[in-house]
Amino acid sequence: MSGQTPLGYLAAAGERAQAIVPLTWFVLSVSILVCVVIAVLLWVALRRGRASAEAVEIRAVAVGRAPHALRWIGVGLALSAVPLVVTLVWTMVTLAATAGPPPDVGLVLDVTGHQWWWEVHYDAARPDQGFTTANELHIPVNTRVLVRLRGADVIHSFWVPKLAGKTDTIPGQTNLAWLQASVPGRYLGQCTEYCGWQHAHMALEVVAESPQNFQRWRAAQLQPAEQPLGETEQRGRRLVEFRCGLCHEVRGTLAASRVGPDLTHLKSRRLIGAGVLPNTAGALSGWIEAAQGIKPGCQMPNQSLTAQQLADVVAYLETLQ
């Protein structure tokens, strides 16, 4: 994570976001300048003409006209027009550079917004190379990535501020966004279209890494779940298949539902619950037992498991590297 403001976009890390930063600074500076100038003018105007403090009786102050006052409006408008025109031109140039998908796309992803998590699908075009994951997407650094956005239920908005501005995911249509990271790192994303109770907890992470690391990650994600070795893990797997499998998929096991996030490589992700908890054994068991306490209203029900069952499940999930 970069710095203390993971969703601050002025410290951009990709070309699409970087293109917007100077424009933002420009309009922000103009705005601040305008406010200061107007405040100073207002202050001076108040000081210079102000009726004496004794004039509590308003009738004591004469009514009059002043010639040439209209110049204020003429000069004011002329001066305002300059930054407006610059902003307009700069906006159009930036829009042209950042709007459409670039010609040289190196990777295509499908991201679907769900209440309240992100489904990420790689390489839909080549089924044998395709896989599904959730809430954490990896991209190779310095590569332009096309993201096809869909909404599964309600409207969400896909936003990874350090890499790109927002694009909504709308049911019934496919919106295109594109990302590029110039610097390796983890970049936080967040749903920004209000989508219900847990709109606040609908984060994702974009991991930008070297092409070698990306290929390694991708190869690992393609693999089905590793066969558990110990007896505890086997017991856990059975529970996962029959309980978690109602909603989740673990490729290579009987758990094959796609209602919730794919768990095949759960432990390769840094966070769980779309960003609510770190992916530790303790947090996992807390999440399984009391997801509704942590993320009220989410689709994940609280599981009533015995301590032993919970330990087994977590032991198994810990193997899903």
């Binding site: 107007i38 003018l41 207002l42 001076v44 105007a45 108040l46 210079r48 003409g49 102000r50 009726a51 004039a55 308003i58 102050v61 004469a62 009059g64 002043a66 006052a69 209209l70 204020w72 409006i73 000069v75 004011g76 408008l77 305002s80 027009a81 407006l84 902003t87 307009l88 906006t91 159009m92 829009l95």
Partner: peptide
């Protein structure tokens, strides 16, 4: 976008008119 930027112009008329009214007035 252009229309939204252009709308600043009529708004600015009001601001400068008010400022000029204070500037050339004797505020109580």
């Amino acid at each position: 976008s252009a229309a939204s930027i252009a709308i600043v112009v009529p708004s600015a008329v009001a601001v400068f008119s008010w400022l000029a009214t204070i500037w050339h007035g004797r505020p109580v």
